[in-house]
Amino acid sequence: MSTIEVNGKSFETDEEGYLVNLSDWNEDVANHIAGTENVEMSQNHWEVVNFLRKYYDEYQIAPAVRVLTKAIGKTLGPEKGNSAYLYELFPYGPAKQACKIAGLPKPTGCV
């Protein structure tokens, strides 16, 4: 078990940096995790992160990349629902990296 320090508070993460407790998440924690991933959070990043949190809230899982891409396409339009756009925002994989920033567990099926 590891921890990260944000605003003087420490939060538990697993050895890969995913938050252990979903309820620990807030925007500052997200910004901190993004920093460790070398991602600078823009409006577009937040849009995906918030989309993921809503998806998790509804279905209780973090979606696979293909499923995330399709779902984003449906809600935010085809110019955002494609892997080129999502990988540009999250170079190490939208599901893995964006999920981590969103405070969600690693997507089922990711190894």
Partner: peptide
Amino acid sequence: TKNFSPTYRALEGY
């Protein structure tokens, strides 16, 4: 215990 029943509704998206 985690309620995983909402996940059955995600199957369509998969």
